[in-house]
Computed example of a mutant assay.
Amino acid sequence: MNNEVNTEVAPSVIAPQEIDVSIGSRSWLYKLIYGGGIIFDLTKWLVLILVVLAIINTLFFSVFVVSGVSMSPTFKDGDWIFWSKNIYNDTKPQRGDIIILSYPGDPTNKTYIKRIVGLPGEKIEIKDEYVFVNDAKKDEDYIRYSVGTDPGGVWTLTSDQYFVMGDNRPNSNDSRYFGPVGKRFIRGKAISRLLPAFQLTSDM
């Protein structure tokens, strides 16, 4: 008769543990790349905003940074100007509009900011330091201090030409020197000042 006792203990069966694969249990790097999070969401929105701004800048609006004092005191050196590229597709430039234009005859295609003083078909005369349009003296209330408007001369504009000048007449290279500007050189209209402070051009 075998009286031996089996003392071996049967191995216990360990139930498999479920692994939590929810977003909350993953590493911060995994969540950053795949699962969202504040930084990821902000990055996505930033990229989206930059893409939208790039499209707007290409097709509709842009920012022009003033370099120089030719439009002082209306615009000063370093001002950031918000301007429209397509505003003249359906409307004609008007007297008093502040425009962004390419410098006529400049192979570098440098961009300038000036004010329209004369319209197509008009006679522009500068004498005695004043501007005359069709022999009538022009009241230029946007010039806030006394400045001379030399050199003098007479220009008769064609059906596609505009006479442009800077508000700071003694320190502006404009139509008095390079002549009237064809409409093809006009790139758009200044809408508002972004920096140093927002201000509509109509209030300037």
Rank of each mutant, 00 (worst) to 15 (best):
K44M: 05
D79F: 00
P120H: 06
L50P: 09
K123D: 07
T91I: 08
I98E: 09
T74H: 07
K127E: 07
G78K: 14
W45Y: 11
D41G: 14
W45M: 13
V65S: 03
A54K: 01
L101S: 05
L119M: 08
V69R: 00
I99P: 05
S72V: 13
L46E: 15
L53P: 05
W80C: 10
D90N: 05
A54M: 03
P107R: 06
G96H: 00
E129Y: 12
L119K: 04
S84Q: 03
G78M: 13
Q94V: 01
N89T: 10
T58W: 13
T58H: 12
D128F: 02
V51I: 11
K85L: 00
R115S: 05
K44V: 11
F82R: 14
N86V: 09
L119Q: 09
D97E: 12
I49V: 00
V51G: 15
P120V: 09
D128Y: 03
G121S: 09
K31T: 05
I100G: 10
F40D: 15
V47G: 12
I38L: 05
T111S: 01
K92P: 05
G105T: 03
L48M: 14
K44R: 13
Y34F: 13
T74N: 04
K92I: 04
G78S: 11
Y103F: 06
V69T: 12
R95C: 02
V66P: 09
G121Y: 04
I81C: 15
L101K: 01
D41W: 15
Y112E: 11
G35E: 07
I33D: 12
D106G: 13
T58D: 12
L42Q: 13
F60M: 08
T111A: 04
N57G: 02
G37I: 13
